[in-house]
Design a protein around this nucleic acid. Structure first.
Lengths: 244, 244
DNA sequence: TTTACTGTTTGACGGATATCAAGTGTTTTT
DNA sequence: AAAAACACTTGATATCCGTCAAACAGTAAA
């Protein structure tokens, strides 16, 4: 098997020798749907690169349901930030979403390489910086918005990603619901509501957005860059009516 | 004015020459209560060290209310992660909570120093790593927990911080409410409820915890390390009854 | 095909929290 | 000291969302 780990941003500036060093400590793992990579609280001396499938990062609450923190796509690394902690411990659990393939690396070994290359250092700092930004956005979504808003924002993001007003949901509805911190029932009801209001059409996991503008308003998508975070968005009241 | 910026973790390993370099680009600012340091979306080519008072980091939603992301205490730096982004833009707004004093530094200048010292690099990566962990914890609190749980956890944290079952709230109740993502009314009602149940006594901003164990149960403080994130916590039902 | 099994939908219901509105202090200003 | 401003409390009401339970569909297994 020949995988060039340089496809990952984190490794992209490594030279051949460094790649060899990193690979020495690497370990390829294949996981079935639902299989666990590690659990919250486990000692964290390895980090990961997804090369196939998806990996779900989540936390479990005391009442048993889980909040999905992130879904890692192929080509991306995760848990690499832990290597800078004294007693590294995974703050989340990870398991495969469908069959998945990952490579894991020894953190200590990679730290050695880091301590030889400023370029790699800066790269990892960049990655962490982006991740921080992502989490702040996440908190935003969770607190300042309703379930409907969150779902609409997700649909809109997906739509722009695909470039079509007709697309397939990127995962099972139950999984998406968890990702958006709501129950499957709620997820279902909101979709049905949007359907009734002629904002979109659904058929299984196929979504067709009909009233794109209204959807956008419902999501009131201020980006993370917060272009006009102030203006109180006059639409709010009208929208409440629009949704009966 | 003689401030040794080495009190900040981030700068702690700088030598005299490096400190001099950093200070060259620094700028001391004094802010009155509510005064703004920067807003969401502003270009971010400086980062900050709080040397007095508190700085509130927050985001404003379209309906006008704000979610407080963090309250930065003296001795701590913030916004330093942005310097690794191509087009650095503050993802949050910052303003003084009460009178405050901060030093700001030029990001580019600091990057130069970074590119000369692995030690400083590793230190900043450690800081970012901790911040990531903190944000994940934050998401946890926000999604997996009720308002009561969040408030209890906060009280408990404060109690352990002070080492006394009698302490003063670290900020105005309204501010704390925003920090915990709830309305001031809700905050007030929960405190009153805990009072009625003889769990604590309040007098203005003074809190005296009476039933420490019950408070702890209400907060069911699984730490971020998630020692037993699985076990469904038998207390839940009893506690519901305890709170009527 | 029949039978499970799992994921999704639908309905009835309840509870937690936001909203709106008014009232009470407390601090600041004049 | 009086007035104004602000922060907090309290009550009534609305609403969103979670819970529980049952029906339904699609898929895999027997």
């Amino acid at each position: 098997m020949n995988i060039d780990i340089r496809m990952a941003h984190l490794f992209s500036t490594l030279n051949d020798d460094q790649v060899r060093q990193v690979m020495e400590s690497s370990h390829v793992g294949t996981f079935k749907d639902g299989e666990s990579l590690f659990e919250t609280g486990d000692e964290a001396n390895r980090f990961f690169l997804v090369i196939g499938g998806q990996i779900k990062l989540f936390r479990v609450s005391s009442n048993g349901d889980q909040k999905i923190i992130d879904i890692i796509q192929p080509g991306n690394t995760f848990a690499e930030a832990l290597m800078f902690m004294e007693h590294p411990i995974y703050p989340v659990s990870a398991e495969a979403l469908g069959p998945a393939k990952v490579i894991s690396f020894d953190s200590r070994r990679f730290l050695q390489i880091l301590s030889e290359s400023f370029e790699v250092c800066f790269r990892i700092m960049g990655t962490m910086s982006q991740r921080l930004r992502g989490l702040i956005k996440e908190i935003d979504d969770l607190t300042l918005q309703s379930a409907t808003t969150r779902l609409c924002a997700m649909l809109l993001r997906r739509m722009e990603e695909v470039g079509q007003n007709h697309f397939t949901l990127p995962a099972a509805k139950g999984v998406l619901a968890a990702r958006l911190s709501m129950k499957p029932e709620t997820f279902s009801r909101i979709l049905q509501n949007l359907s009734t209001k002629k904002i979109l059409k659904t058929k299984g996991n196929e979504i067709e957005v009909v009233d794109c503008d209204l959807l956008r308003s419902l999501a009131h998508l201020e980006s993370i860059y917060g272009l006009e975070p102030e203006q109180p968005c006059v639409l709010n009241k009208e929208l409440k009516i629009a949704l009966k």
